[in-house]
Computed example of a mutant assay.
Amino acid sequence: MAHLSSKVEYGLHCLLWLVEPREEPASSRDLAELQGISPTFVAKIFPKLEKARIVVAVGGVRGGYQLARPAGEISVLDVVDAIEGGKPLFECQEIRGRCAVFGDKPPSWSTNGVCAIHAVMIRAEQSMRAELARTSLQDIARTVGRKSPADFAHEVRGWLSGRAGARTEVRLASLGAPAAKRIAPRAIPRKRRTDT
Rank of each mutant, 00 (worst) to 15 (best):
L16H: 03
R53P: 10
S108C: 09
Q138H: 11
A150E: 12
H154L: 10
W109I: 07
F90D: 12
G64S: 03
K147V: 10
I188T: 15
G158S: 10
E169I: 00
T168K: 01
K7F: 11
V61K: 01
D139K: 07
L77Q: 05
E91N: 14
M1Y: 09
D78M: 10
E131Y: 08
W17M: 06
V56H: 05
N112V: 10
A52N: 09
Y65W: 05
E169L: 00
K44V: 05
G103D: 12
V170W: 00
I183C: 13
E91A: 15
C14D: 03
K87I: 12
D151G: 04
G113K: 11
L172V: 01
R134V: 04
R53A: 14
E73W: 07
P39H: 05
R190V: 13
T135W: 01
Y65M: 04
G113F: 07
R182W: 07
D139R: 06
E50D: 08
K7R: 14
L160H: 00
E125A: 12
R142H: 12
V120E: 12
A52Y: 05
D81K: 07
F46M: 14
A141H: 14
A43H: 04
V170C: 05
I95R: 13
K147C: 14
R53Y: 07
D104L: 14
P47H: 06
G86N: 02
L16K: 00
M128I: 15
K105T: 15
R190N: 13
P106Y: 08
I74F: 03
T196Q: 13
G11C: 04
I54C: 04
S127C: 11
A100V: 15
K51N: 11
D139W: 05
S127K: 13
D30E: 12
R182E: 15
A184R: 04
L12D: 06
L160P: 00
D78R: 10
A173G: 02
A43Q: 05
L160A: 03
R190T: 14
R167E: 04
M1W: 08
Q66H: 06
L15M: 05
A119V: 05
F102E: 12
T168L: 06
V80N: 02
E33V: 06
R163L: 03
V79F: 04
D30W: 01
A43G: 10
A116W: 07
S161G: 12
W17K: 02
I183R: 07
Y10N: 11
I54K: 01
L34C: 13
E23M: 02
D151L: 09
S75E: 03
I183P: 06
P21I: 04
E50I: 00
V80Q: 03
D30R: 05
A68Q: 05
R29I: 03
G86C: 02
G64E: 00
D139P: 06
I54Y: 01
L132E: 08
R163N: 04
V170N: 03
R163P: 01
E33W: 02
K51I: 02
M128R: 13
R157C: 00
I74S: 03
C115I: 04
L16I: 06
G158Q: 09
I117N: 09
P21Y: 03
P47A: 07
R163A: 09
A184I: 06
G60S: 05
G85H: 03
L77P: 03
S161T: 06
A100T: 14
H118M: 07
